[in-house]
């Protein structure tokens, strides 16, 4: 930790970071899922898990009858974000597969709910995370699973070639 400077020590800090990551990879190769760029990805997933859960919880407790379809989908989305976050944090062979599966479900969910919110607007009187392709969240729900799949396949490929 003594290498933690703001200025001149950055290079040595970066070097020690590289060593750190190499050491981690030796412990369990799949822990690379949540280091480096994967850490930023995991953080974004964590933010979505937390905020989707908080929002879905509020919607179900306070006004479930207003839009039961949209709010049930909010709960499902929240659960999938939690599963993805936990799999990224665990970082082993099995959780790598689970993370890929949850990214695929997520992407399918965004597409299906996005289409449904235009074809059946009466069921989506209130917004859920995935309605209108996640436009209420800056389309991050649409892009995030793609970035996730890209990163997870990169990690998988690195492990297979190593």
């Amino acid at each position: 930790m003594n290498k933690r400077h703001d200025g001149g020590g950055a290079r040595s800090a970066a070097a020690s970071a590289k060593k750190d990551r190499a050491a981690k990879r030796n412990q369990s190769p799949f822990s690379a899922m949540h280091t480096g760029p994967g850490r930023a990805l995991t953080a974004v997933y964590g933010v979505f898990a937390l905020s989707a859960t908080a929002r879905a919880g509020y919607q179900v407790i306070r006004e479930f009858d207003v839009a039961p379809v949209a709010y049930s989908l909010s709960v499902i989305a929240a659960v999938i974000y939690i599963v993805a976050t936990i799999s990224l944090v665990i970082g082993n062979r099995i959780s790598h597969r689970i993370a890929i599966a949850s990214c695929l479900i997520e992407f399918a969910g965004v597409i299906v709910v996005g289409v449904l919110s235009f074809t059946h607007p009466e069921d989506f009187a209130k917004p859920s995370v995935w309605s209108s392709f996640g436009s209420g969240y800056g389309f991050i729900p649409l892009i995030l699973p793609l970035i996730g799949l890209w990163w997870l396949s990169l990690v998988g490929r690195r492990i297979r070639t190593a």
Binding site: A13, K18, R21, T35, P37, R39, A40, A43, V47, S51
Partner: peptide
Amino acid sequence: TAILVIALAGFWAFAELSRWGPGVLAA
């Protein structure tokens, strides 16, 4: 939720000794 996000991001950024530590804090 905002308090939890910042607290967890702080720990997460502290643990990462690369450019992606600030990346977490940016998010």
